Simulated scan of single mutants.
Amino acid sequence: MEHLIDQVTGDKQSYKIADGIKKYTLKDVGFVETNNGNFVFDRPIGDSPYDAKFKLKISISKDFDKLKMSVTDMSGLTDIDISKLKDSEKMVELYQYILDDFINREILVKN
């Protein structure tokens, strides 16, 4: 279910889309615009993208009114609880680094 506020399974912090978000800012940080105008961020979480076992997926609607966030396996089909990952401390640190960058760039805000 998509909504304005979302959080990743296993993360106690929820996030929402920042007011005044800009299309070009999303593209600058790696979001890709889909054919229907939505924005998708799909990035492996790990020291190297070649040996990553998980990925962070964030979708933002073209009207900037819907947000969906998840950490999945590399196929993108299975939602993962980040608090229960094998190397969860390191993975959560990498995940948090990405989200902190999005907060600093005024894409997301903590709810």
Rank of each mutant, 00 (worst) to 15 (best):
K66P: 04
L67N: 00
M91A: 15
I58Y: 14
V29K: 00
N35T: 13
M91I: 14
R43A: 06
F41C: 02
T72V: 13
L56R: 08
S88V: 06
S70L: 04
I60G: 07
L67F: 00
S61H: 03
Y95K: 10
F54R: 10
D63G: 01
T78R: 07
D81H: 02
S61G: 14
E33P: 05
A52Y: 05
K68I: 01
S83V: 09
S59C: 01
V92S: 10
K55W: 05
I98H: 02
N38K: 07
D81I: 08
Y50Q: 13
T72Q: 10
M74Q: 14
I60K: 03
A52K: 02
V32A: 05
Y95G: 05
L67Q: 00
K68Q: 07
K53E: 14
I80W: 11
F54K: 08
A52T: 04
S59G: 08
D51E: 15
Y50E: 12
L85S: 01
G76M: 03
S61R: 08
D47Y: 11
F39S: 09
S59Q: 12
K55P: 03
G46F: 08
F31W: 08
Q96Y: 13
N36P: 00
K62N: 15
I60Y: 01
T34F: 13
E89R: 02
L77E: 08
K68F: 09
F39D: 07
I60S: 09
D47T: 08
N35Q: 13
D73N: 14
G46A: 12
L99D: 04
F41E: 08
E33T: 09
Y50G: 02
N36H: 08
E89Q: 10
L85Y: 00
L85Q: 07
S88Q: 09
L56Y: 09
M91D: 08
D73G: 06
S48T: 05
I82N: 02
E89L: 11
S61C: 08
D87S: 13
K57V: 14
K90L: 14
D87K: 13
I58F: 13
G46V: 07
E33Q: 15
Y97V: 12
V92T: 11
F31R: 01
P44S: 08
D63Q: 03
Y95Q: 03
N35G: 07
L67S: 00
K53R: 09
F31H: 05
F31S: 09
S75R: 04
L67M: 01
R43D: 03
I82L: 07
Q96E: 15
S48V: 04
R43G: 02
I98D: 03
S83N: 15
E93N: 06
M74R: 12
V71S: 02
F64G: 03
Y50A: 10
K68A: 11
K66E: 14
E33R: 10
K68P: 00
I98L: 10
K66G: 04
K90D: 13
S83W: 10
S70C: 01
F41Y: 15
D73W: 00
I82P: 05
V29L: 06
S70N: 07
Y50F: 15
E33M: 13
V29R: 01
L77K: 11
